[in-house]
């Protein structure tokens, strides 16, 4: 069976660190950064990139449209 792998690209400058995507991810891929963007917000990033399946749950719940989702079949 083909394995599906995903990845996300977060617009870290527009991200406000609301944490909604972190909570929505079914595979605990995302976390909030320890550093801050120029607006002073922690931003979402892939803490466990290998676990991402590209389901786009994070992108669908992001209030600010900051997340692009990518997916490949291997």
């Amino acid at each position: 069976m083909a394995k599906i792998k995903g990845a996300v690209l977060v617009d870290t400058e527009r991200c406000k660190g609301c944490d909604i995507c972190v909570q929505a991810c079914p595979y605990d891929v995302l976390a909030l950064s320890k550093t801050f963007n120029t607006k002073g917000y922690a931003f979402s990033y892939m803490l466990h990139p290998d676990q991402c399946i590209g389901c786009a749950s994070c992108g669908l719940v992001c209030p600010d449209g900051c997340i692009q989702v990518f997916k490949v079949k291997e």
Partner: peptide, 15 residues
Amino acid sequence: SNPIIDPKNLVYEKS
């Protein structure tokens, strides 16, 4: 750089 992050693999972005 993550090789999956490539425009050809894009499945979701804001309108």
